[in-house]
Nucleic acid binder design. Structure first.
Ligand SMILES: [Mn+2]
Ligand SMILES: [Mn+2]
Ligand SMILES: [Zn+2]
Ligand SMILES: [Zn+2]
Lengths: 151, 151
DNA sequence: TCGAAATTGAAAATCGTTTTCAATTGGCCG
DNA sequence: CGGCCAATTGAAAACGATTTTCAATTTCGA
């Protein structure tokens, strides 16, 4: 890692090392805050901006990319060998992944047909995960059928 | 329109009427600022928050939906009969649309296979549009081949 | 017409992101 | 080894789009 960064003109520091390690140790779709908290457990002197900057760096060198779901927080997703799409539960906001190898071909075709040179594909499927559907079903029978405020 | 809103429990006002009219008269993917400017040309007394609130309302009643591209501004896209995806040019940030009827079937299948009940699909293809590619080509030959700063 | 509920506009509050700046550190060079 | 310069860090402030607050006004059904 140190070497990898050096070739790109970046230096290694204790903070950076801890941040990188922690990021890759955590699950996918990590927010700055989440990583900040995590890192703080090891070294409470690390600043927020350092975490943020290194997350940006991780993206810049191609090891991750930002995921934006319109809910106000940017999440960082480790780069994967094969592209994947996201299921975004509109209730619990959990992200789940799925492969999209079969679809990528079609997206490439569509791009070509539209004289567009693609560099990346994003597929997001919104809906409800099993857990939230079950929870809803339970609540609906129990509670009144009045207006359920739009989640 | 007035009637449509009334049935949903909303009132009509001069401001609202102008905002709705203007929104649907403008092209797709309108931001609050853009609509605000547009509306102001007709009635310079309308407040920013009123425009914002009505844009939200338009979404709430299903006539449009927010589009988030991670560039900091939320855009509002008129609801279309058939779902469509977006080409997002990483140079000029222009959005172009494409139909995705053929792909929706597959996304539905993928969802079912993953025990996820979908309510919406989003496909975003990032890359470069023809205009920006041509522009780049021109610049590259003219200028030096030094490090092109990552756009 | 009356009044409750919705709407409006200005201003302020939010809040995640990004920048600033002085101090510190990493690592290449001699 | 030192020394030096660019990179990095941390705290704090700046940003900026979004959202809320609140008093005043308006809508529309009873
Ligand atoms: Mn992912
Ligand atoms: Mn669109
Ligand atoms: Zn869920
Ligand atoms: Zn372009």
């Amino acid at each position: 890692m140190r070497e990898f960064l050096r070739t790109k003109g970046f230096k290694m520091t204790p903070q950076r090392e801890l941040i990188f390690k922690s990021f890759f140790a955590m699950g996918k779709h990590v927010s700055v805050d989440e990583l900040y908290d995590k890192v703080r457990q090891q070294d409470s002197s690390i600043g927020y901006s350092t975490v943020w900057r290194n997350l940006k760096l991780i993206c810049k060198v191609g090891l991750a990319e930002e995921v934006n779901l319109g809910d106000g927080v940017t999440r960082y997703d480790r780069a994967t060998e094969t592209p994947h799409g996201h299921f975004y539960c509109i209730d619990c906001r959990k992200l789940t992944e799925f492969g999209m190898d079969n679809i990528v071909g079609q997206l490439a075709i569509i791009s070509r047909e539209n004289d567009f040179v693609p560099s990346g594909f994003k597929i997001e499927i919104q809906g409800r995960c099993r857990a939230c559907r079950d929870k809803r079903a339970g609540e609906k029978t129990t509670a009144e059928s009045a207006e359920a405020q739009r989640a």
